[in-house]
Simulated assay, not measured.
Amino acid sequence: MAGLKPAGLKPSGLKLGVLISGRGSNLQALIDACAQPGFPAEIALVLSNKADAYGLERAAKASIATAVVSHRDYPGDKPAFEAAMDAALRGAGVELVCLAGFMRILSPWFVERWQNRLINIHPSLLPSFKGLDTHERAIAAGVRVHGCTVHYVRPAMDEGPIIVQAAVPVLGTDDPHALAERVLEQEHRIYPLAVRLIAEGRVRVDGERVVVEGHVPGTDAALVNPAA
């Protein structure tokens, strides 16, 4: 594991650990949200399995602590790789782990260790189009509505209680890139929303279903189909 790079974080609210592998656009949405006055969470650590992930630069610019735990340092030893990630997260005092383009499948051990404290954002309206190439598959299937989902992570890929979804229309002129860009705009809206709801204590897991307690002004549309 690369050494932790400390940064001056002001203590405020739920401490997040964000796992990335690449450019970190959803990480940036969380950084921007956490910088807003009154937002009930802060990013305690950005952790990547790739030392050249651009998201690490985003974190550094925002004075957020970063760490690299490369899977290549643990060839054939996934338990040791995940144990190192777990140690880094716990060492930073992380309370909620947010997957933001983290391109490694997590083992049941890691998922269960962070049970109901590990969330992901997926570019489809789950349970439809799990896995990769969601936009291509949505267009090929002829669906009229597509979107994105923030959910609690479970051992099976792209499964778990749904916290927030956002829908966008699939247009007749769409190609995968155009559809992806429109969905990404909504990802950047609903990931911070999901974190806010959790940090405010409004999210309760009942079996394998999420119940959002109380009313958050201005979020009704976003929970189903955000307005433009």
Rank of each mutant, 00 (worst) to 15 (best):
V153S: 04
A167F: 08
R90I: 06
T173L: 12
M85H: 01
V143S: 10
H135R: 11
A140W: 08
K130P: 14
E200V: 01
E185T: 15
A221V: 02
A222H: 11
R209A: 15
V195R: 05
T134M: 08
R182M: 08
L125H: 10
A156F: 06
L193A: 05
V205H: 06
W114H: 03
V143K: 06
L125I: 13
L99E: 10
G93L: 09
H151T: 00
L193K: 01
R113I: 01
E159Y: 01
R90M: 10
Q115P: 00
H188S: 10
W114E: 01
H177W: 13
V143R: 03
V168L: 08
A156R: 09
E95C: 06
R154M: 13
L89N: 01
R204C: 10
L106S: 02
G101W: 13
Y191P: 07
I163D: 04
V150D: 06
R113K: 13
R90F: 00
L99G: 09
L193W: 06
G218K: 04
L171K: 08
Q186L: 06
A199K: 04
A199L: 13
P169A: 12
A221S: 09
P161M: 02
L96Y: 04
R182C: 06
Q186I: 08
A194G: 07
M85I: 09
H135I: 03
V170C: 02
T149F: 12
G172S: 14
V150R: 01
L106T: 03
A221M: 06
G147Y: 07
T173M: 07
V97E: 02
A84Y: 05
M157G: 04
V164I: 07
N120I: 11
E187I: 09
Y152R: 03
R137C: 05
E136L: 08
R144S: 15
Q186G: 11
A88G: 07
G172L: 14
G160I: 00
G201Y: 09
T149P: 07
G147V: 06
E187S: 07
E181R: 15
R137A: 03
D133R: 14
I119F: 05
P176L: 12
I163M: 01
E95P: 02
R209C: 03
V145N: 11
L99V: 09
V170A: 05
I119N: 10
F102K: 13
V94H: 01
R117G: 04
L99D: 09
D206V: 15
P123R: 12
V212H: 01
H151G: 04
L223P: 00
